[in-house]
Design a binder for these strands. Sequence first.
DNA 1: GTAATTGTTAAACCTAACTTTAGGTCAAGG
DNA 2: CCTTGACCTAAAGTTAGGTTTAACAATTAC
Lengths: 145, 145
Amino acid sequence: MLSELSIGQIAQRTGLAVSAIRYYEAQGLVRAERNAGGQRRFARATLRRISFVIAAQKFGFSIARIRELLDGLPDNRTPTPEDWAQIATDFRIELDARIAALESLRDNLDGCIGCGCLSMKKCKLYNPGDEASREGSGPRVLRGL
Amino acid sequence: MLSELSIGQIAQRTGLAVSAIRYYEAQGLVRAERNAGGQRRFARATLRRISFVIAAQKFGFSIARIRELLDGLPDNRTPTPEDWAQIATDFRIELDARIAALESLRDNLDGCIGCGCLSMKKCKLYNPGDEASREGSGPRVLRGL
DNA sequence: GTAATTGTTAAACCTAACTTTAGGTCAAGG
DNA sequence: CCTTGACCTAAAGTTAGGTTTAACAATTAC
């Protein structure tokens, strides 16, 4: 049972493309040692890290935020279940907030579209603490989630 | 009370940038007539359309999907509350599905991370009907939402 | 009448999250 | 020795959803 995995093995086990894993390394989501030939060798614990990344992405978390969450894990040793449970707690809190926000948006929608009004002035859907905007270029969706 | 609005007025009332409204027109989300000088003039009903677009985007719907939903509205006359209620129904169904998907993902997470396993093989989080991938370039997040 | 405001287009730029390409290197098998 | 397959890097390309810029026309306000 080899303790270090090549990038191809990581790709196969996680279902990600090799290029995505290199990208994640460049983004600081995972780390890799190099063997004599300069090839990446990943610790097995990397599989869990990547699993977490995949799950978090499904919930709409950005790479940047995921990196912050992962920073809660120890760097010097393999994370224990307790380490994971700790970051899962932070994660879970944000997750619940996101789901709650969506549900609240849905309820507003019911009140708004259900009555056929959908009016800018009356409807809560369009104003409520709209943190939605970020200055500058690029996509701005999902910012207020 | 003018029945046609300029792009600036639309921008002011919706809170969007003028450029975003032009973009939405280019994407077929809204239509505009032109006045003698070639400037856009929008029907008042456009405000509701844009309101819908904004709301739908908050829920994570893509421009393409929003366009499809809006195609359910009549093009030849101002949509009635009943027209809106019809597309709101379709919208609501997808919305509920999305929220349910997130909740189910969260529950999986509880079972997975809560116990510290987070393993590729055992965990439902990483496989369940993974429609997540689209071939080719570009971001592939939120596809399985 | 003229200045300021608002509008027009086309094309380039931007961000996130990756993939693709080009041009090599490394290790194993025959 | 040579080929095959997995790996390497750096740089460019891609998609979505817009913004920014440049150069110019139309409206509005005084």
